[in-house]
Design a protein around this nucleic acid. Structure first.
Lengths: 194, 194
DNA sequence: TAAAACATACCGACTGGTCGGTTTTTTTGT
DNA sequence: ACAAAAAAACCGACCAGTCGGTATGTTTTA
């Protein structure tokens, strides 16, 4: 088979996402991941230098997914408009919501591991800048109430993060996850529109 | 000494909070905790049935702290008024903000461990009910805009959770943690007041 | 046939938890 | 009041098992 090597690597990453989400980084052992992927330990260390390197590869995959989602939403709506915010959110929810424990796992590890922190923070800054610029534009055009743009964007992102967490925590989680987009819209319309 | 037993237990809990916050539940070993507390392993397992039992004890301490904070804020302001919300937030921020990694640790473990989930969810339900009743009252009295009370309270709690997380994640974390209360007030005043 | 991909066997460090025994505190008997 | 006895608190060596990682051998690919 030609692409066997690539398939092995993909299998390892998929199994890692699955097991890290269920068990967490520490509890899910390398052996577990290999077993789930149907691959030997030797194959694992052929593709990844260490368990930490695998985690960084996972982070890379995840950030690329979000990147694609944002880009897709930018192409769908007119450039640099307020609609981009509401367009982008469903993508972010869909991508992050599927692997929410993994999401938290990233944050926890990033807060304790500088290598992972550095890998995570750059895209976060990019999104933050993106939202900020959009809101600033809205304020300049008079379509939003007067408010510090950075503050406003931070509040919106906070809303999104909080809602994501609540959909994990709440017994009615599924219900709220489904309406997360509507709540965000309501928030945007109520808070920002004049 | 009379209270030696009690002091040993307290020391173990304090060391556990400290090390779990820094290293996380899995990485911080029982030996590490005992060493930090200046106590033997035998003493540890005399006070706690298992490492998991220690974690549940920590959760109990933390929830009691928040309980006290909420109660304190209820006593300070007139009963069942809107002010209680803004009064309570600084306490919640102060209590949770000090041990934010621990905060995430609780959530992660709760999402994977039903025993911890059950221990965590009851107080959460209580606070949620508390906020909901306050907002419902405001709507009835006409001091808030028309809005589903549960939805409104959920948005506020989401804001608070999201802001807490951001203060951990952001390089300007300290700045935002300091102004978290002001942002929440702004949110409340802008979104809910007619 | 050489190199890349994968499998197997193994290592030392470390883990949560146990256990026999010692010290300290409290209760009891007189 | 005071020692004897019982109970609670504490100690630290130790166990069986697991971990991430390595060394070496076998198969597959180009």
């Amino acid at each position: 088979m030609q692409h066997r090597s690539e398939e092995t690597r993909t299998q390892l990453i998929n199994s890692a996402i699955k097991l890290f989400s269920i068990q967490g980084f520490n509890t899910a052992s390398v052996d577990d991941i290999c077993k789930d992927a149907g691959v030997s330990k030797g194959a694992f260390y052929h593709h990844f230098e260490s368990k930490q390197a695998l985690f960084l590869a996972l982070l890379d995959v995840w950030l690329n997914n979000i990147d694609s989602a944002i880009e897709a939403s930018r192409e769908k709506s007119a450039p640099e408009t307020f609609m981009q915010i509401t367009e982008a959110f469903p993508y972010i929810f869909a991508t992050a919501g599927d692997h929410l424990p993994m999401f938290l796992e990233f944050w926890l590890k990033a807060s304790r591991d500088d290598e992972i922190w550095q890998a995570s923070i750059a895209p976060y800054r990019r999104y933050h800048k993106y939202f900020t610029s959009l809101i600033k534009k809205g304020v300049d055009e008079g379509s939003f109430i007067e408010m510090d743009p950075e503050l406003a964007s931070r509040m919106i992102i906070s809303m999104a993060m909080g809602l994501l967490l609540q959909s994990l925590l709440d017994p009615k989680g599924a219900k709220w996850e489904a309406t997360a987009r509507e709540i965000t819209d309501l928030m945007l319309n109520t808070l920002l529109k004049k």
